[in-house]
Design a protein around this nucleic acid. Structure first.
Ligand SMILES: NC(=O)c1ccc[n+]([C@@H]2O[C@H](COP(=O)([O-])OP(=O)(O)OC[C@H]3O[C@@H](n4cnc5c(N)ncnc54)[C@H](O)[C@@H]3O)[C@@H](O)[C@H]2O)c1
Ligand SMILES: NC(=O)c1ccc[n+]([C@@H]2O[C@H](COP(=O)([O-])OP(=O)(O)OC[C@H]3O[C@@H](n4cnc5c(N)ncnc54)[C@H](O)[C@@H]3O)[C@@H](O)[C@H]2O)c1
Lengths: 235, 235
DNA sequence: GTCCCTTTGTGAACCGATGCACAAAGTGAG
DNA sequence: CTCACTTTGTGCATCGGTTCACAAAGGGAC
């Protein structure tokens, strides 16, 4: 039961740290490919685009895996982060909604590589059901519960239209899935204990537009004085 | 110069607030469609999935646009938020990299609706150049600078492979664009003043996997004791 | 062994964001 | 006009996260 370098910390890694670990992992994989054996917090932080103190504090939550005066062993750190993130096992992912976006995701090789495996494609449209995409057969949404159970799906990617998303999410949760990645522009309501992450293109664009507008205002000296409600309205 | 309800605040809206405004806007649009005239912070907060105190504080950064005892006028608030986000003007967007993802984005109607207009599709592959997608002609990446200038592109969506992303970003920035939405899994380095937002599917999945693993550990009582480095290694 | 150099791991100050709780403001009934 | 009720806007305590800065740890030279 003796552990060589040092124990990993008591459970409880800050959420902000968890969100950065994949970034470190990606940078480390690049370094491993280029044959680097060790890396300093300074260099790794630069590659990941973060402050080096932050990087060290993040890693310290996993355990004391560095060597003072030297840095971190690249392969060892890759292993530790992978283990912490749960990438040493394979996760079966189902994609629900095989339209424009669902197809792009299914064809995307990038996430199959690391720990994730697309185990099913599901759609409600009879036109789409039966299509072959990226070596998979698109199945009917009626099969949802069966597929989840039999193939051990633990993560569902939602790429249906917004109107169908909540309804599909309810079924998915009822079938026992507790992790959902949602691309539909709706606020899903799910029970306690179910993790939802959302990717929302239009929100990202709106945030960019906000800053873009600020930059333009700064150029022209203040907003173009359009503060009034355009039509005369009585509140 | 007199403003009726009250002045908007001195510049400087917290970043966290900016990120939620699009959420409120979406909820408000839904309410406007259903014919609601006013809404309380409680109801709007519920629709957007946030705490009502947070909502009120967020809105207070734009100005005092509510009426005590009544709530907020839906249409008026839509206008104020739209204006703050810069959605009262149109933004020309160029999509660079018209592969699986780029095509899905180009075909996506959802963000054309509100303030954004896809003004160009650009790709390096001669096979792809000339294709017609969603009513647009795919143009060669050599045209990048010309297209940006002539069509007033202010936001670029990057959907090229990771290897090309930095290089394209450099050109885009050199052409004067200061807002980039990046889908490629790389940390882009850009000069001060350029805003980058990234959407990274694989990071989202890894975060979900982390929590999923935690949930499984909790079931089975602690991690399955795989703390050691698999092979014997000397650090 | 000693000394010097590098780099980690972390205490502590700081900063922004969150959420409670309530005074102030407004509505509507009588 | 007064009173009861609703709902906003915000002061304040709190929290999580970031950053600085440095003591302690380890490596290598000699
Ligand atoms: N395409 C994009 O670039 C993009 C970008 C951001 C967000 N989105 C969002 O992603 C989602 C999908 O976008 P899209 O462009 O692929 O739409 P799409 O219409 O091309 O595809 C949706 C698919 O979902 C299927 N579907 C509908 N109801 C279903 C149900 N109940 N169960 C299973 N499948 C069902 C449809 O048959 C269709 O194949 C939408 O919510 C959209 O707002 C898309
Ligand atoms: N497809 C997905 O679901 C998905 C999901 C997450 C992230 N991504 C990322 O998005 C990016 C695009 O993914 P994809 O699946 O569409 O890849 P893809 O290979 O299908 O498309 C990439 C396109 O970019 C073009 N391109 C290459 N170099 C270029 C250059 N220098 N200038 C202009 N165009 C160039 C290619 O010709 C190709 O058409 C990748 O970085 C990928 O990692 C994709």
């Amino acid at each position: 039961m003796i552990r060589r370098p040092s124990q990993p910390r008591e459970r409880g890694i800050p959420e902000a740290t968890v969100a950065r670990l994949p970034l470190y992992l990606r940078a480390l994989n690049g370094m491993a490919e280029r044959g680097l054996a060790t890396v300093s917090s300074e260099d790794l932080a630069a590659a990941a685009g973060v402050n080096s103190a932050k990087l060290r504090k993040d890693l310290s939550h996993l355990g004391s895996y560095g060597t003072r005066g030297v840095g971190y062993d690249v392969e060892y750190l890759i292993y530790q982060i992978s283990r912490e993130l749960g990438l040493t096992q394979d996760w079966a992912v189902a994609i629900v909604g095989v339209g424009n976006l669902g197809r792009a995701l299914a064809n995307y090789g990038g996430f199959v590589s690391r720990g994730f495996r697309v185990a099913a494609l599901l759609d409600a449209d009879p036109e789409v059901v039966g299509d072959h995409i990226a070596g998979l057969n698109v199945e009917h949404i009626d099969e949802l519960e069966t597929v989840i159970r039999l193939r051990g799906v633990s993560i569902v990617v939602l790429a249906t239209p917004a109107a169908a998303a909540q309804q599909v999410a309810d079924r998915v949760v009822a079938a026992g899935v507790t992790s959902i990645l949602n691309f539909a522009p709706v606020v899903l309501s799910v029970p306690e204990g179910v993790d939802i992450r959302k990717v929302d293109l239009s929100i990202e664009l709106q945030i960019l537009a906000f800053h873009e507008q600020r930059k333009m205002d700064r150029m022209t000296g203040g907003p173009a004085m359009a503060d009034e409600w355009p039509e005369a309205v009585d509140l």
